[in-house]
Each structure stands twice: as C-alpha cells, then as structure tokens.
C-alpha cells in the first residue's frame, strides 16, 4: 500500500441539543439529518437519537451521534445523562422569545459546571425567518457567546439557513485529528501522520 492511498479517516462525536421547549431543537436536527422541515412536529418525548455524517476537507468523515432532548420540565432529569459525556452541545434559543435566551444561558452555565471541560458549545438562535418578531438582538447574544467562548450562529430550521454551518463549525472545533490518531495507533501502529491539520481560526463568520 502506497502512502498516497486515501486512508479512510473517520472520527465520531456525541452531540447533545439543549434548550427550552419549542425553540426548534428537533426541527434543527431534522433539517440537518433529513433536510426536511415539518410544521406540525410533535413535541419530543424523552430524548431522541439520530446520526449524521459529514465530510470535511482532506477526506475526513465526521459522524455525529445526536441526542435531541425534550425541553419540557418533566424530562429535566434526563438531560444530564446525555450531556455528561457529550463532546459538543448545541444550545438553542428562539430569537422571537427573549425568555428562551435566558433558559439557554442557564443550560450553558449547567454545561460549564457539569459537562466535560473540553466540550464545544454552540449557542444557536433559531427562527431567523421570523425576523419581524425578533426579541433577541444578534449583538446581545453574540456578545454573550464571545464572553463565554462559545460558537455563535443564527439559523432557521424552516428555511435551512445556517444549519449546516453550525455542524461544520462544530466539527472544525472538535479534536478530530487526535481521535483519528488514537484509533489508528491502536489498529495500525505505523502510519503516515504527516497530514496537514484542519484546525482553522476560531473567528465567527456569521
């Protein structure tokens, strides 16, 4: 086997969605996984599980194991179980509901206290298509994200705006190379590791 042969480079990560009920968590996941939007989506019960893979540059495949939690009070006790060993979290609020940002901030505080220290968090404002009813200004949320070292995006699950971006930007932040290296060193001890790193700058492009 020559060194030029494309070696399957594969990494997988656990992702959890958090946020108040009805901000559009499930809609975001479905847009990402199935590229569809259902106006009459039923409220999530418990936590749902989906997977999706994305291709990065340099032949790297990243697979997300996604846990979509229910925002309802009743299922509050389930959330820790899913964020505890998550590599990344998408914390969603609804740009037309100021209170939902407050709830998102609480989730972020909880994550910072209880989740993995190196968890990648993306604060995501949803329902960008309802610009006319906006209650949360972009600046306010973005400032909060910068202060807390989070990724920040505004998206619309309905139109699909910005959805892929969220997951690609998360993938860029994740320790993809480390994971590939550790799995490879376990399975194939001698392999060329001189691949360029994919880590790019952290700046927000929204």
């Amino acid at each position: 086997m020559s060194i030029e042969d494309p070696i399957p480079r594969f990494a997988q990560f656990k992702l959890v969605l958090l946020g108040e009920s009805a901000v559009g968590k499930s809609s975001i996941v479905h847009r990402f996984v199935k590229d569809s939007f259902d106006d009459l989506r039923e409220s999530t019960i418990g936590a749902a599980f989906l997977t999706q893979t994305i291709k990065l540059a340099n032949d790297t495949t990243v697979k997300f194991e996604i846990w979509d939690t229910a925002g309802q009070e009743r299922y509050k006790s389930l959330a820790p179980m899913y964020y505890r060993n998550a590599n990344c979290a998408v914390v969603v609020y609804d740009i037309t509901q100021l209170a939902s940002l407050e709830r998102a901030k609480n989730w972020i505080k909880e994550l910072q206290r209880q989740a993995n220290a190196d968890i990648t968090i993306a604060l995501t404002g949803n329902k960008l298509d309802l610009e006319a009813e906006r209650e949360v200004s972009t600046g306010e949320a973005q400032q909060y994200a910068i202060d807390n070292g989070l990724l920040f995006c505004e998206v619309s699950a309905k139109t699909g705006d910005g959805i892929r971006d969220v997951f690609y930007r998360i993938a860029e932040q994740l320790p993809v190379e480390e994971q590939i290296r550790s799995t490879m060193s376990r399975s194939k001890p001698r392999i060329n590791l001189n691949k360029p790193s994919t880590n790019t700058d952290q700046g927000c492009a929204c």
Partner: peptide, 17 residues
C-alpha cells in the same frame, strides 16, 4: 418516583429505537 418513571419511559423508548 416521577424521575424513575421518566427513566423507565426512556428505557422503553430506547428499546424501541
């Protein structure tokens, strides 16, 4: 008890999944 019920329901859901 309420918590237990939520966990059990979730177990059932996972089983279905």
């Amino acid at each position: 008890r309420e918590e237990l019920m939520v966990y059990r329901e979730q177990m059932f859901l996972i089983g279905e999944m």
